[in-house]
Amino acid sequence: MAVNMLQLHIALSIFSYGAFLIAFVSGILFLVLERQLKHKQLGRLFRWLPPLSLLDRLNYLSITIGFGAFSIGLVLGTILAVQSLGAHWLSDGKVWLSMVTWVAYAVLWSIRVSSSLRGRKVAILSILGFSLVLWTLFGGRYVLPTWHAYL
């Protein structure tokens, strides 16, 4: 089964977006539960939420795996961009935004791994990071010209 580079790039990118989505959701749930525990107002959601430690771990794993997949996908995408756009490959809006997204998640991941920040701050960053992903996916093409016009 011959998988071409484009297919692999797409698959990895989508997979990484899925992972970032999980990081986003777990980040939000973490903040909700943390707030309830801190303010001692255990609302209706309290019973159903998984433990803080689990949400934290899920957030960590999904960021790490997502970042890994995203990085590989980006490398492939860069190769493809250079192949099809030649010297102007960085002028493509989506490529550019993806680079920015990569840097953002690189920062997020390194913060997470060094564990000098825990919990809340990382949760907030996960949410911001995913917002950037959404922007990359949907907003990019309205602002910058891009070859990824099918998205």
């Binding site: 525990l37 939420l49 433990p51 689990l54």
Partner: peptide, 8 residues
């Protein structure tokens, strides 16, 4: 219960 909610 609280401890379990925080730590699992």
């Amino acid at each position: 219960r609280l401890a379990q909610k925080i730590f699992g």
